[in-house]
Amino acid sequence: MTKTVVLGALAGVGLLAGAAGAATLDDVKQRGTLNCGVVTGLPGFGAPNANGEWEGFDVSMCRAVAAAVLGDPTAVQFVPTTGKTRFTALASGEIDMLARNTTWTFSRDTDLKFDFIGVNYYDGQGFLVPKALGVTSAKDLDGATVCIQTGTTTELNLADFFRKNNISYEPVPVETQAEGQQQYLAGACDTYTTDASGLAATRATFENPGDHVILPEIISKEPLAPLVRHGDNDWADIVRWTLNALIAAEEMGITSANVTELAASAGDNPEMNRLLGNEGNLGEMIGLSNDWAVKAIGAGGNYGEIFEKTIGENTPIGLARGLNAQWTDGGLLYSPPFR
């Protein structure tokens, strides 16, 4: 009897404390840094450079949020996570947001209790094969040995694809990008499969990138999205609209070069004025200062700039915009209006 009372009391205290810790925004402001979960090392998306500074596409998302909330794009504590640890790190509050090329799926959104705040990269799973193999379609891969990074949705897609096409394969699970590359180059597998962006990034590091081709089939939809804990809607709004601000900024032609100039005085585009805090009080509505978007865009530029700098065609990764172009250019990026 006494024991149950004690247990109950302890549980009650736990619940109260849990409720108190739910306001992520306050935590971040009080801490002065944003804890952002990133990949342990994927060139172009998130990897420490030779000086130990994190850079990459997902990393820029963290920096933009830090700039919007704290005014300082460097006030980010990057927490490297593996496929296994990323969700626990977020659920347990170790990180405030996760920007780690994570695919938005139904069960992750609902069963695992996370909120995906919007797609920052539309990806799909592809196959990388040596040219010498003479394979032109993924359907020719019957009986092939396939290297695959464990702990990702790609594993499930792969099983589905081969089952659907009634062909067989032998999986070789690998733990990291580097090991996948190593196995593939040693010929321990015929093909390496992961998100097409990751394949491009991997191929870029090869001795002779031209000897390898990415097969035309894209076997899955992989909308990669940053995510936050379920239940803290204020925080989710901040991250969501920071992403939207970056996308909208590109659409409106706001770049890191001209953002301070444009924000200095109200122009004749009312939406741009609202975004940059010259009109209305959008910042206050999400609990931030009115120049939040200016800071976010100033951190690393708009979506297009970030893309070009980290994974675009002029980088070793060399990805085309493709689906990730603005809707006005035939892509899927379409920010809701700032109103």
């Binding site: 342990t40 090392g41 994927l42 060139p43 990897a47 420490p48 030779a50 490297p80 996570t81 593996t82 296994k84 640890t85 733990e175 990291t176 990008q177 580097a178 090991e179 590359q181 190593q182 180059l185 870029a204 590091t205 001795e207 070793p316």
Partner: peptide, 22 residues
């Protein structure tokens, strides 16, 4: 478990970099 000790440094950032992969 994604900590960058000596082996972690090698398997992670160094082998994953474009400069030193392989």
């Amino acid at each position: 478990i994604s900590m960058f000790d000596l082996v972690g440094m090698i398997r992670g950032p160094i082998l994953a970099s474009t400069d030193w992969g392989g």
